[in-house]
Design a protein around this nucleic acid. Structure first.
Lengths: 259, 259
DNA sequence: ACCTGAACACCGTTCAAGT
DNA sequence: ACCTGAACACCGTTCAAGT
């Protein structure tokens, strides 16, 4: 039953080094290997037993270092989130926020399969990147957010930040992508101009570049211009939103929320 | 083993009518049961074998009606997406779009666990709701979109529409939520006012109501005001985005946003 | 056309026991 | 403190065979 693994020869060699530093190292190593695996096979096919195999240990060993598969996934997401928060600079809040969006995109483009982890499963988890939250709040206050609308504005920043990339990098239906792509292409071509004149006219322009009518995701067909548009739309909308609330007070101009 | 199902009485009765439509019926039943299961246990714990058990058939039976687990999940997502697209009315594009957003929210609030399915896994799949795409395109053209920016605007609509709800209804780390919640609460309280004065001041206002710093999701603590803000921010931002491109043409404009 | 029965190759997680 | 070895209770999927 337990056939000696083909990779079994490599592991004892590494163990022969005899480092005592294993404890601290191991946790990081597990997260690193997990990230590697997720990059390779996706979060869906990812398994704890695979990372155990990669490290030449028994599956149970993983459980000494990590509480559960979910906890490990949370750590992986946290690792990718590192360094996305831009440093506080002298720049305007708009510049800082644009920077934030593009940094997040760059980070998650390096590990596309982690995007769905961050977006759909554990946005609100352990890592609790205080620097990110702090930075967003500072930017929003600078933008004129008040006690009444800070919460709403913050939530909109986070969802805009993460929402687009979650969708851009959402995995396509795994198996038989090519045949599925052909079917979708066919459906795109067979839209009746009588029933849907607008659709029939513009769908060719959207094909494989727009959500719902694409057969490759952002790793193969990046949606650069749409992402930029999203950033600009959000910032412009945010300006409008924050000014609307303070419009009544704007005459007296008592807005000095200095901390 | 194969106990006669409680619902088994209904099915043969329908077959006795002599319809060849049994195939079509079963497929719908499978999707219905799958949706039920996902509502109950979540998409993570959802299993094909469970739906087989619910229908009192062997697991292999499911595979006669559906190609794979993924395909079934796609059908479930499609079922929830039904009827979110507002009918074309005489109203302005802003009103139609607001309606679209709130209809989507209502639909997905009825089946919160499906939100992550739609958002992160198979947005661009089989169902291909032509009415949704058509409606969005018509609204955008009415809003002044051109051949140059229609694609970008469309993608931003879809990602804004789906992104927020994906995050609002993202499942919390399953096990031991209460103890995990306490840990998060503790961390929220222990923010150093010296290192992060802004954070320390405003975090209590965000606690359990904001992404990343909440311990209950949208099913328990709905983010109503934040969602509304998101809709208004997006529409305002979209107006700005579309007008920017046509500003050269718009010497005479009357931007009174009637609702 | 539709379903059974059984098998295959996996999972995550737990736990005594070793060192 | 860290890991082994084995077990438990599951999975999704395939496939011959039945009716």
């Amino acid at each position: 039953m337990a056939r000696t693994a083909t990779t079994a020869a490599a592991a004892p060699a590494r163990r022969a080094v005899g480092r005592p530093s294993k404890g601290a190292i191991k946790k990081e190593a597990i997260v690193a290997v997990a990230l590697e695996q997720i990059d390779k096979v996706g979060v869906y096919a990812f398994s704890l037993r695979d990372v155990a195999r990669s490290l030449d240990v028994y599956p149970a060993t993983i459980y000494w270092h990590v509480n559960s598969k979910d906890a490990l996934l949370a750590d992986v997401a946290g690792a990718v989130m590192q360094e996305v928060t831009p440093p506080r600079g002298k720049s305007s809040w708009q510049v800082w926020m644009r920077d934030l969006f593009f940094r997040y995109r760059a980070a998650v483009q390096k590990h596309p399969n982690v995007a769905q982890l961050i977006g759909a499963q554990l946005v609100s988890n352990s890592s609790l990147r205080t620097d990110l939250i702090d930075g967003v709040l500072i930017a929003l206050l600078e933008a004129g957010a008040t006690e009444e609308n800070l919460l709403e504005a913050y939530n909109c920043v986070i969802s805009s930040l993460i929402g687009f990339m979650t969708m851009e990098l959402a995995p396509m239906p795994s198996e038989e992508v090519s045949q599925w792509a052909d079917a979708l292409k066919e459906r795109v071509r067979s839209i009746s101009p009588l029933d849907h004149p607008t659709l029939a006219r513009y769908l060719p322009k959207l094909a494989n570049k727009a959500f719902i009518v694409r057969w490759q995701n952002g790793t193969e067909v990046p949606l650069d211009s749409s992402f930029s548009a999203n950033v600009e739309i959000f910032i412009a909308g945010l300006e409008s939103f924050l000014q609307k609330k303070t419009r009544a007070v704007a005459a007296s101009e008592t807005r000095k929320s200095r901390s």
